[in-house]
């Protein structure tokens, strides 16, 4: 670790995947071999990614800690930093500070349990990290379900991996697009073979059976989360076993800049991973 806590590691972009028209995934390799050797993180942690000249932006680490030698991030082009990142090419250098924050309690609570992942849109990025972590240690878990949806077919991220999960016998994937999202846009020749409907509805109609020992991981737009939580509870999941990640604005990631807190809960230090039971104790300021 450098003395300067704000000093990023230099990373080279080794692969770029255009997930949707406005969303990309970068695969990044540490330039310094000694950092690459030592670096480790846990599922759920995040980092500050910088486009030198534009600034820093916060994204989760979207790859699984079981995949060594690189990390991946997935971001949507929305502001100054992400626009700058979106214009970069393979071989370019970006900065990375991290890993920061807590993680999903895999060993402590997820081992030996049925796991259900529910994600919407770009919310699949933090969930995907856990999905691959679970799949890479498949024997340690019971049934694995994934419910993933986006507004339209075009907005689905990690399409190649959805296909992989669909083909695997040890994962059950339910994919969906919002009503109307299946209509092929001009030039799109894909015939949609998933569900049509909002994530909470599709989840409720699925064959997934919840239980008080089962684990659910939920990430997506606030509106999706809001309607998904009651469905999960109805299915038998208990708030202590429903996890999400909070996504407040951050600058330092180190508990100092003072903007990510929800009450006395610092998303960058105490989070971003939080159970629904703990979340419901916090003021609604996220």
């Amino acid at each position: 670790m450098p003395e300067n806590i704000y000093e990023p590691y230099l990373m080279e972009i080794t692969e770029i995947l255009q997930e949707t028209p406005d969303t990309q995934t970068f695969r990044l390799a540490f330039k310094d071999p000694s950092v690459k050797e030592k670096f480790s993180f846990k599922a759920g942690q995040f980092g500050l990614y910088s486009a030198f000249g534009a600034g820093e932006s916060t994204f989760c680490i979207a790859s699984s800690p079981t995949r060594k030698d690189y990390i991946e991030c997935t971001f949507r082009t929305t502001g100054r930093v992400t626009s700058e990142l979106a214009n970069m090419n393979v071989g370019d250098t970006i900065g990375f500070r991290g890993p920061y924050g807590n993680s999903f309690p895999l060993e402590e609570k997820f081992y030996g349990k049925n796991i259900t992942f529910v994600a919407g849109g770009i919310g699949l990025a933090p969930v995907r990290c856990v999905i691959w972590n679970v799949l890479d240690l498949r024997d340690k878990f019971k049934d694995v379900h994934i419910v993933y949806g986006a507004r339209t077919y075009t907005d689905l991220t990690y399409k190649h991996e959805l296909k992989e999960w669909e083909e695997r016998k040890d994962v059950h994937l339910v994919k969906t697009v919002d009503p109307g999202g299946d209509t092929p846009e001009c030039g799109c020749t894909v015939k949609w073979n998933g569900c049509v409907g909002f994530v909470p509805t599709v989840l409720e109609q699925s064959t997934i059976k919840g239980g008080k020992d089962d684990i659910a991981v939920v990430c997506g737009p606030p509106i999706m989360i809001k309607f998904t939580l009651p469905v999960l509870e109805k299915m038998g999941f208990v708030p202590e076993n429903i996890y999400t990640t909070l996504e407040n604005k951050m600058k330092c990631g180190l508990g100092k800049c003072g903007r990510c807190n929800v009450g006395n809960f610092y998303v960058c230090k105490h989070g971003p991973v939080i159970s629904y039971a703990d979340l419901s104790k916090l003021p609604q300021e996220y």
Partner: peptide
């Protein structure tokens, strides 16, 4: 009060990242 922002200021050749009061 200690809240701060972090911003970059750069030319084509060099840049500086600053911690600024927010």
């Amino acid at each position: 009060c200690h809240c701060f922002d972090i911003t970059d200021d750069a030319t084509m050749w060099e840049g500086v990242r600053t911690k600024n009061w927010d």
